[in-house]
């Protein structure tokens, strides 16, 4: 089963390597990992997408919680949640037909073209992993020059929050 684990940790050097090291040392899978400081710059928020049996996910959350730098943690896939990933994709766009086709597909997927040259477009697209996958599927593979994906960011719906002042 795929799980999204959100955690708040001290924004200190080496904190990321403690998390990454834990996953490799214990043989857990990481599908994606994103990290950035929060509104409080002394804290970082990390989103880890992982998969495994219920037992393994339980161990992962316990082991992460055990890290001295980790302040708070939640498996947001346990409840209603929203997840988004950002993708930047550079595609070849040389002739008129190619350019209009790319524009049309970008519109359908509610993306934006954010860089244009004589021969290329850079398209920005946000959504679930499935949506980004679908966009890649939809365009001709030969036209893709480069894709950059941010990894998943996730947040619980409603009143639930991982902030330090709430439960």
């Amino acid at each position: 089963m795929r799980h999204i684990i959100s955690l708040i940790m001290e924004n200190e050097s080496g904190a990321l390597s403690r998390v990454a090291g834990l996953f490799s040392a214990r043989g857990y899978n990481i599908e994606s990992l994103t990290v950035a400081p929060t509104e409080d710059p002394s804290l970082s928020r990390m989103t880890i997408v992982t998969f495994g049996s219920e037992e393994i996910i339980e161990q992962i959350t316990k082991q992460l919680n055990k890290l001295v730098d980790v302040v708070k943690l939640a498996d947001i896939t346990e409840g209603n949640h929203i997840e988004r990933e950002l993708m930047l994709i550079k595609v070849r766009a040389t002739d008129a037909q190619q350019r209009s086709e790319m524009k049309r597909l970008t519109d359908i997927f509610r993306g934006r073209i954010i860089d244009v040259t004589d021969t290329t477009y850079v398209i920005e697209l946000t959504g679930t992993c499935e949506k980004l996958d679908a966009f890649i599927e939809a365009i001709d593979n030969d036209n893709i020059m480069e894709t950059v994906r941010s990894g998943v960011s996730g947040i619980a719906r409603g009143e639930k929050s991982l902030g330090l002042n709430t439960n």
Binding site: S13, G14, S17, R18, G21, A25, V68, D69
Partner: peptide, 14 residues
């Protein structure tokens, strides 16, 4: 030292 000891300490500091 922090990197090398990380998997076998409860915590470490630089």
């Amino acid at each position: 030292s922090v990197g090398i000891s990380r998997p076998c300490v409860k915590h470490n500091f630089l």
